[in-house]
Design a protein around this nucleic acid. Structure first.
Length: 407
DNA sequence: CGGGATGAGGAT
DNA sequence: ATCCTCATCCCG
């Protein structure tokens, strides 16, 4: 043992106490061996050395992988307090059932995660970010217990609330709908932290260097993918004349929430794989959506190569899938999600169906008109609710009229 | 469908 | 005194 190593171990012994030090110093299998000088069959000399380097044990995962639940499987990111990926398998029978709902189910810390690495509801409360399911609750209506599993915070990432309820929600509904056409649907969802667009950073610094950091972030935090639609090539060329690009000024930056520093992803991804007896090969689509409000863009706008998602997540998806034998889901199916206006009928119907009183009903109806989501079906719901409420209020008046003289 | 904010009441 | 659950009301 070299003097230096001895010194280090002595220092450790002083810090950790004699028992621990004795265990290490006198372990015969941790002694260093000189590599063989002669070239021959490789001896396991490196593992022995590695054992000494890792004398106190190899840094280990804090949580098993994968974590298995009733109807989804995931890998947890203990550093960011969110999942790395969440995998599901959907079928028509499973998605069609309606035995479970969200009532009485709340988000909660996952008991499988040590407190040191968990996130809590407090991290999200008042943060400005919503708790976005990766395995959606709506994919688990067939079983209340499996739906409850999806409310563990291991299945949740901080998500822009408009994105969550609108675009991402429509994407999830579209994926569920794929079970109508294809026998098996496999979905993997998760968060991404992508660097800011190179060119946009250059643009921001070129326009005005004295700009406060927050202002430049507002214009540059948009994703490589999300902003591709909006930015024009000519703008970039013009700016490049003003100032040549700096070498690769890319940065990944993200907000963290609450006492546990839950990481807010810049993007969310979804990898969709379908198979069916009617298909000669499985079909795959990979999508990356920026974690900001997204309007009516076609899903194809967010389609990416699977390899791009893998580079961002650091994993290989479906490693046993023969990629040469996989077709393009968007080419085959069109990737036509529900339009936003069409989608709004869902909650506007519900709102007009169960109003608290006439005043609320009239207010909601006026708002629905204003937003242009009214159709004949919605008008029918409105008229039925109105008639029902008016009758109810009439009953009340009659009851009072009958009861009053007696008193 | 997807979410949040608030306050009352109960448990610790 | 503080946390947690639940009911209620709200949003897109």
């Amino acid at each position: 043992m070299s003097p230096l190593a001895r010194q280090v171990l002595a220092g450790l012994a002083g810090a950790a106490g004699g028992l621990l030090a004795a265990k290490v110093i006198f372990r015969p299998d941790v002694t260093f061996q000189e590599p063989p000088a002669s070239a021959g069959i490789a001896k396991p000399v490196l593992p022995t050395r590695a054992a000494q380097i890792l004398a106190f044990g190899q840094p280990s995962a804090t949580v098993p992988s994968p974590l298995v639940y009733r109807n989804h499987v995931l890998e947890y990111d203990s550093a960011r307090r969110v999942p790395k990926w969440v995998a599901e398998h959907l079928t028509k029978d499973m998605v069609k059932q309606q035995v479970a709902n969200r009532k009485g189910v709340n988000f909660s810390p996952d008991p499988l995660i040590p407190t040191q690495f968990t996130s809590t509801n407090q991290d999200y409360w008042g943060s400005g970010w919503s708790r976005g399911h990766m395995a959606p609750a709506g994919n688990n209506k067939h079983c209340q217990d499996s739906m409850r599993d999806t409310f563990y915070l291991t299945n949740v990432v901080p998500q822009d609330i408009d994105n969550n309820g609108n675009y991402w929600n429509r994407l999830e509904i579209w994926v569920r709908g794929l079970t109508e056409q294809y026998q098996d649907v496999w979905v993997v969802s998760g968060p991404l932290w992508l660097p800011q667009d190179n060119k946009e950073i250059i643009a921001a610094t070129a326009v005005d260097d004295s700009k406060p950091v927050d202002d430049s972030l507002k214009t540059t935090v948009k994703s490589e993918i999300g902003s591709k639609v909006e930015s024009s090539e000519s703008e970039h060329k013009q700016i490049r004349k003003v100032r040549p690009p700096r070498p690769s000024p890319k940065t990944v930056s993200y907000q963290v929430l609450g006492p546990n520093n839950v990481a807010v992803p810049t993007h969310l991804y979804k990898v969709v794989l379908v198979s069916d007896p009617m298909l000669d090969r499985p079909l795959l689509g990979a999508f990356v959506v920026p974690n900001i409000p997204v309007g009516n863009q076609h899903l194809s706008e967010f389609k990416v190569e699977l390899g791009e998602v893998e580079k961002g997540v650091g994993v290989t998806f479906h490693p046993e899938l023969d990629r040469k034998m996989v077709g393009d889901l968007c080419i085959q199916s069109g990737c036509n999600m529900q339009d936003y206006k069409e989608f709004q009928q869902f909650f506007w119907t519900r709102r007009l169906k169960s109003p608290w009183n006439l005043r609320n009903l009239e207010r909601d109806w006026a708002e629905a008109m204003k937003k242009g989501v009214v159709n004949s079906e919605l008008e029918l719901v409105y008229n039925e609710s109105k008639a029902r409420l008016e009758e109810k209020e009439l009953m009340k008046v009659e009851e009072k009229a009958v009861g009053a003289p007696a008193a």
